[in-house]
Design a protein around this nucleic acid. Structure first.
Lengths: 155, 155
DNA sequence: ATTGTAAATGAAAATCATTTTCAATAATCA
DNA sequence: TGATTATTGAAAATGATTTTCATTTACAAT
């Protein structure tokens, strides 16, 4: 499983003219095994335990490359720190959207209602591409509000 | 028209226990007359022409307050600089979503397909609130990709 | 109107995620 | 096995946003 995504990633990098390096492999491995939305620093720290010679700068640069090839999604939850996760469809990742608590910054992934959402999105995407001659590559749907705990606390 | 939104804003501020100050009034006036998604600095500069004594810090603080009361939406288009716009429904603002060009950062507002989107969103929101006991206050839908010009340029 | 008090403000400094610079190193291809 | 070019790490720079702190102001109570 890990090997498969690693192989996939190698090919994907080469296809885009990038070199396959230890840093890139390590970050791909980490992300492909992680369920969460990790920040660049999260990734740096985890990698650091295994390969202390990979710097934070390289993590940023690698993430940029991975986003560019479409292997990784860059997410923004409103705190000013980007999060990264493996794109849907690379493994058997389920497509999901996010609920973001504006108080505690907790993120809930949901897959409920996704089918309807996807269907609508496809339709919308098609219409928009045509009307605005826009080549749509990605979308974001996020709901912001208060999670159960924070709702109680704040009252 | 301007007076109406100013009056509305006064009440809204008081209701939340905030004081009505010149800086707040000025920023509300500006945003309520502006169609665009302005950054804090954009707002600061425009206001500065009229009231040179209002500082950038105050602009940031005021925007925070306005977002908190729900009068203003804070938007994130992926460059690392927040944009602000008057919330739908305060005036006769049309609800819209955004197309973001990842190359030139151009933003296109679209209202097409909005009815269907809104309907689906309402349904989804209801379902999610119930399942996750989440109090949803806001949502974001954005499509990322290449605008017509950039599509041609990059090839 | 006047005043007391907490909230709001401006300027300057601090923060902190992300980028840039630059010299050194490593991945690929002939 | 080199040659060539991309990649890298460390340190410095950047730049939007926040914090600090002393001063001013809005407004409720007098």
């Amino acid at each position: 499983m890990r090997k498969r995504s690693r192989y996939f990633a190698r090919e994907e990098l080469k296809k885009s003219g990038y070199k396959v390096t230890p840093a890139r492999t390590a970050i791909i491995d980490l992300l492909s095994n992680s369920k969460k939305h990790l920040s660049a620093e999260d990734i740096f720290l985890k990698i650091h335990n295994i390969s202390p010679n990979i710097g934070l700068t390289t993590v940023y640069r690698t993430l940029e490359v991975l986003v560019e090839t479409g292997m990784v999604c860059k997410l923004d939850f409103g705190d000013r720190r980007a999060r990264y996760e493996f794109s849907q469809g690379i493994e058997k990742e389920k497509h999901h959207h996010h609920l973001v608590c504006t108080n505690c910054n907790r993120i809930i992934d949901y897959t409920d209602f996704i089918e309807d959402e996807i269907e609508l999105l496809k339709k919308t995407e098609k219409g928009l591409s045509k009307k605005y001659k826009f080549e749509i590559k990605n979308h974001i749907i996020q709901f912001y509000g208060l999670c159960n705990e924070c709702r109680k606390k704040i009252i």
